[in-house]
Computed example of a mutant assay.
Amino acid sequence: MGILGDIGHLIMTPLYYVISAVLVGWHWLFSEVLQMDPNAGGTWVLSIIGLTITVRAALIPLFVKQIKSSRNMQLIQPKVKELQKKYGHDRERLAQETMKLYKDSGTNPFASCLPILIQMPIFLALFRLLDHHAANGDGIHFLTDELAKSFGESELFGVVPLSATFLDNGGSAAVQLVAALLVVAMTATTFTTQRQLMSKNMPADALSGPYAQQQKILLYVLPVVFAVGGIAFPIGVLFYWTTSNIWTMGQQFYVIRNNPAPGTSAAKAKEDRDRAKALKHGKAPAAEVVAEVEEPTERRPQQRQQPKKQSREQRKKSSGPRPATDQSPEGEQQ
């Protein structure tokens, strides 16, 4: 435990600095610049939302890698199935050929997990700030003792402490209600995000492969995990995770709408929108324009080339001497 504790401390300490700096920076913006009550729960909730936006904006490059990896995983599923049929009897050879396929197609099967893996330490750091430092008024790094006490004692609507949980509610029905609503929102946004990916941006032939089965499992398992664990999360942490889910849902909707995977319902919907947009501006899509231009050309009968006019001597030279049986009376006279 000593070694594990040292490793955990080594990882979490920089995060405490970053999380506390961003959180306090947003709190300063709302309280000093916008003149909001620095001790109000709403000010701290907005600071948490600002922290979420900052974290998710920093993770956009990883999200792009995640989308590309997920798309590649979907598109190579037919090839994975072929490998399974060919090397199903030899697991070692199947693993080698599958990894070779991943390498050749530039696919990293673990890239889809990067955003959530990186967010977990940030989530734990914020959880620790609320559950321990803010609740006890014990400051850490940029979160001074005064700010930690303000954070720990802040109440949303004047009755819901941000450090309270559904289980540890102090007998307050308002805390349970707000916590329950946030847990439901967190669970629903998690489910909707996964469902959006499967129903809109997965080709039909990828919906029956092993990758699709993993996605189906995650579709139902993740919301259950968040729902069960959410009842122990502080209200402030629930705001962070719900906001993060909403960001993911919107970001994913934008990517799927504007850059869908080929052969998916989202790709067909984009083609329909592009066609309708082109017709609205009086322009037909390029494929239709080419078809309209080529069609009359194919139907137009080919003109017969007229032979050049030749003299009698030229015709004799080009045709050569004719057999006697083919000679016409006209030829005999010549």
Rank of each mutant, 00 (worst) to 15 (best):
I7H: 03
L10G: 10
V22M: 04
V22N: 07
W28F: 10
S31E: 08
W44E: 08
L51T: 02
L51R: 01
V55K: 06
A57R: 07
P61R: 04
I67T: 07
S70L: 13
N72W: 07
N72G: 14
K85S: 15
H89D: 15
E92F: 04
K103Q: 15
S105T: 15
S105Y: 06
N108I: 00
I116W: 07
L117V: 14
L117T: 10
M120Y: 08
M120R: 10
F123D: 06
L126Q: 08
S154W: 00
E155W: 00
E155A: 12
E155T: 08
G158L: 01
V159I: 15
L162W: 04
S163Y: 01
D168R: 09
G170D: 03
L182P: 03
P203F: 01
S208W: 07
Y220R: 12
P223S: 08
A227E: 04
I231H: 07
I231W: 00
A232H: 02
I235G: 05
S244E: 08
N245T: 02
W247T: 03
V255M: 11
N259L: 14
S265K: 09
E271F: 07
E271L: 12
E271I: 11
A276V: 09
V289G: 06
E294M: 14
E295F: 12
P296S: 00
E298R: 13
R300T: 13
E313W: 08
E313Y: 10
S318G: 12
T325E: 14
Q334F: 12
